[in-house]
Computed example of a mutant assay.
Amino acid sequence: MFIEAVECPDTEFSDRRFLLQSDETLRAILATSAVYALINPMKGTSEADAVATQADERKRTLTSVSQAASTLRSSFQAVRFGQLQVDTLNPVADEISDRIDASPDLFLKVTRLKTKDEGTYVHSLSVSALMMRLARSIGYGDEKARELGVAGLLHDVGKLMVPDAILNKKGRLEEDEKRVVRNHPEVGYHLLKDQESMSELILDVCRHHHEMLDGSGYPHGLKAEQISQEIRLSTVCDVFEALTSTRPYKRPWSNRDALNWMFDRGHLFDKKLVIRLGSIFS
């Protein structure tokens, strides 16, 4: 039931307007001097159903992210040995697409629970889901959106060759360490190029997702007219996910702060895509 108020002093029971969900809370109410409790019969069932639905969705999302991260870890290792069957990632893309469609905010909250060892994999899952959701919002069909989703899953595969000591370093990177990190798109591109049935779009996203509109990105310093909409989309999603995630060297930003920061840097990011990405979240 939904309790609007318990008619007793706040010092005895301070909660107001809440869904009664446990015997413990009921006993706490009964232990007060209250003679009456105001119950809202119109909200009880719907609120309870909403809470139960949210709990179920969270459980499904946690399970999906955990399983997808495990599959992606195996896929990265298959890339290392030239054995990746890229079609095996389609179900992963479909599943995380369903989860972000069901609840974008919840999906991102769940992916924020990643451990240090899962960092690269869950980051890639989140980027993939964002890319698919953003792609569909600007008119891409399901097949193209899924291909972008697989590209998002594989965009950071080059980090396989970056030592964990660098990826997880808490302090500022040295110049030689920066060069190693900045080389991961090129390394990833060459790893993927050796796999069977790898599309040009997936290769392009892997190689160019760190390019910026003003030419200040890497590895090739491409400028606006040289950067396709698909690459711009991947960059916006990748940077947004990085800004809003906890990293060894920083605390997470709020969605709003990350979006505002990116929008204010139209020389780096496509503003229209930043705005559309922001419309995904409540």
Rank of each mutant, 00 (worst) to 15 (best):
G149S: 07
G82L: 08
T120R: 13
A68H: 01
R60N: 14
T115E: 08
T71D: 14
S22M: 03
E24T: 09
H155P: 03
L38M: 10
L62I: 08
E24R: 14
L154K: 05
Y36G: 03
D98V: 05
D142M: 07
R136Y: 06
L38C: 09
S137A: 13
A34I: 07
A129E: 00
D105V: 13
L62V: 06
L26G: 03
L84D: 01
E24F: 09
V92F: 10
A52G: 00
R99C: 04
E143K: 15
Q85T: 14
G141T: 08
T88K: 15
L106S: 08
T111R: 01
R99K: 12
A135C: 07
R73G: 02
G149P: 05
T32M: 07
T63M: 05
A135Q: 01
G152M: 04
R58Y: 07
V122T: 11
P91S: 05
T88Y: 11
L134H: 03
T120G: 05
P41W: 09
R60D: 13
I39D: 03
S70F: 07
E147A: 10
E147S: 10
M131H: 04
S46D: 05
I96G: 00
R27D: 12
Q83H: 13
T25N: 04
R73F: 08
Y140P: 01
T111K: 00
R60V: 06
D142Q: 14
L130I: 08
L26V: 13
V35C: 11
Y140K: 15
F76E: 09
A135R: 03
T88C: 11
A129F: 00
A31R: 15
R80P: 01
A102W: 01
G44Y: 06
K114Y: 07
A151Y: 01
A151Q: 01
G139A: 07
L72E: 02
T111Y: 02
L134W: 04
P41H: 12
E147N: 13
A145Y: 03
T115P: 00
P104R: 13
D56T: 10
P91V: 01
A55M: 11
A48L: 10
Y36F: 11
L38P: 04
E95G: 02
D101V: 06
A78S: 15
S75H: 04
L113V: 00
G152L: 01
D105Y: 08
D94S: 11
L62E: 12
R133S: 09
N90W: 10
P41L: 12
G152T: 04
A48Y: 09
S66G: 10
L125D: 03
Q54T: 11
D98Q: 14
T25E: 08
L89G: 01
L26A: 14
R136A: 11
A55G: 09
D56W: 11
S64W: 00
E57A: 13
I29Q: 02
A102F: 02
S75R: 03
A145L: 05
V65G: 04
R146N: 14
L106M: 14
